[in-house]
Design a protein around this nucleic acid. Structure first.
Lengths: 199, 199, 199, 199
DNA sequence: CCGTAAACGAGACGGTACGTCCAGTCTTGTG
DNA sequence: CACAAGACTGGACGTACCGTCTCGTTTACGG
């Protein structure tokens, strides 16, 4: 007997509806309104159907974010590094303000409660985003735009850390001004940085 | 008619027990074990007694952290700024590793779900911590150790952001090595920083 | 175009497997283990296949019982009535103890929840069993072994009622001793019964 | 605040409401409508409140029946045994027809699925009812109205068995005619019964 | 020095959401 | 075209906590 696919194929409409319902609930009612029950109701779907494909609400939100984020990322290596970094930060900040803020705050909150999800989140989102920046840095090093990086991990922390920090605490706005100032400071560290050069 | 105080004075032992029980639950069972119910049981206290003094679990945790943090902060302005910054980061990192990690992760997670608590958290913890650094910077500016700061808010974000980021995502360790490297980079920004100087 | 048979011929093995699986589940796991899902899995059969032939689990169990019961019934009219009655009760009691108890308890329980099944159950099982006794009584009346029966329905209730009662409540064992004692009492009612004679 | 008393004193009111709601649901919608969820809704009660006091729906129904049954039992030992027996059967039959049928069918059905409940049911209902009859028989034996009973258990089975049997299968009506006929047959067994006398 | 009023433990209350089981239907690919 | 496999909607389950609300019972001030 061929092991192949038997049985009713999984209904993609259902998954689509679940993701969309989750997205809508997040943007409309914020993180507290995102419940398995509410999603199921909004998507006209049975609760067990949700559990068949996702282990928790947070994983659905993660899928929503990944799907949107994939289409949003655009880095042109041909452009100068300084411009690229500015663009990346501006885009990130803009996304957080437009729709992604509630999503990411929800994800990070859940990641603190569920150790296994924290790893999935890190693997599928955080590290992916870091790698984008890492490759940007590598490319800029080759072209000589930036000094050789001593501890690129720390540098990347300096890029994402402040954004997350502002997003989560809300002590100051996440605007273009912030993105540009951050860009400026980071460029200072990266260009003519004696601490890096010597290593 | 002197109204004065009638009735039984509030039992401070109860509050003490609640704070201690919360602390123990957090360190032993992690964030998920900290529920009003568990705290009440552990502290041998009725649940309403808790609600009488704190509006939510997170506020108890916040009190636990504030009490511990107050005793942990020690900044000596007489020391050189570079040394002070290093000390501050090392102490912060050490605290997060020893006991404070679970606490702060719990607080930040709850701050995402409860808007009003987010403000209390920001007011009583985040901003307090920022002010310490801010005054350090001001003092160092006066002594000429660091260049005049154009956007001290951003600079402070660059200090706390990476720490929170590592704490919450867990993608890399929060160790002395990290604290020292971060110190080094921050000092570069602060000393002879043309971007700041010119403004 | 010859009509002939198109498509896959229906598999009688499947129905066999379903009945056997149901029987096994009942005897092994008791009434709670008998679900459409479990039967389908045990019989290596799709659930819709079951629904094609039976409207509910109880109907499958009824079929299992009917099939077994048909082969178990053996009444010899030539024997004296007293002996026949004793044999019938002993056999019934023995069947309930050996395998049929779980089956009949399951059937009776379901009959209380599903009105339509209750009628099918009564028609195909209860009444069939009553008729066997009824014909026994009729034959015995003709031979003069028993007095003419005034209300044979009640008499038959007195035969089956106690058995069901013990089976369902479990307050006392269903053993040979019980069967013999019941036989004895019933014979008293049936032989030289003034209440019946006079009518 | 006049909406109703909340808090602890509602305790008894809640249980009252639960029992009444269960009773109403049973009589109106039959056994299938009796769900923990439906009861909770009908009684304006949280589901956990129900679980705090009863382990299952069947136990609630059992309480409903016990409460009603206690008030319905009336046996006058001064009356002659024959009259007493007739009264008992007539009352039992009447109760089953008026309201108790659905309740008892539900109880017996659940007793088949839940072994532990079966014991509670037997202990608190079945055996209680049997003891009433048992004491009636004992008293009648002392006064000489009935022959010494050889196997009173069996005799009691002959009283309750047919009633349950008719109730559960529904093959014949549970009316006064039935009660009187059953009384008549039982009296025959009990008076001048050689099978008993000789033992 | 005793009455009284606040704070206490205990825990029941109405609820919300959870994650699971199973029912019964529908859809597909295989033989 | 009957079948297995299995995904679908949906209803009820029993559990964990929530935040609110009495219950008596301390307990230390104020009359």
């Amino acid at each position: 007997m061929t092991k192949g696919k038997r049985g009713r194929p999984r209904c993609e409409l259902a998954q689509e509806a679940i993701l969309e319902a989750t997205h809508n609930l997040l943007t409309e009612k914020g993180g507290n309104g995102v419940t398995i029950e509410a999603i199921a109701k909004q998507a006209n779907v049975g609760r067990p159907t949700i559990y068949r494909w996702w282990p928790s609400v947070a994983d659905i939100v993660l899928d929503v974010v990944l799907r949107e984020a994939d289409s949003a990322i655009c880095v042109h290596h041909e452009a100068p590094f300084a411009r690229n970094l500015q663009l990346f930060l501006r885009q990130s900040v803009q996304t957080l303000n437009e729709w992604g803020g509630a999503h990411l705050r929800f994800l990070m909150a859940h990641a603190q409660k569920d150790k296994e999800f924290r790893e999935r989140f890190r693997e599928n989102f955080t590290n992916k985003r870091r790698q984008i920046v890492h490759s940007m840095l590598l490319h800029a090093t080759e072209t000589g735009e930036v000094s050789p990086i001593c501890d690129s991990d720390l540098l990347i922390d300096l890029i994402f850390g402040p954004m997350w920090y502002r997003l989560l605490t809300g002590h100051a706005p996440l605007d273009t001004h912030f993105a540009d100032n951050l860009t400026e400071q980071l460029l200072l560290l990266v260009q003519e940085n004696p601490a890096c050069r010597k290593k």
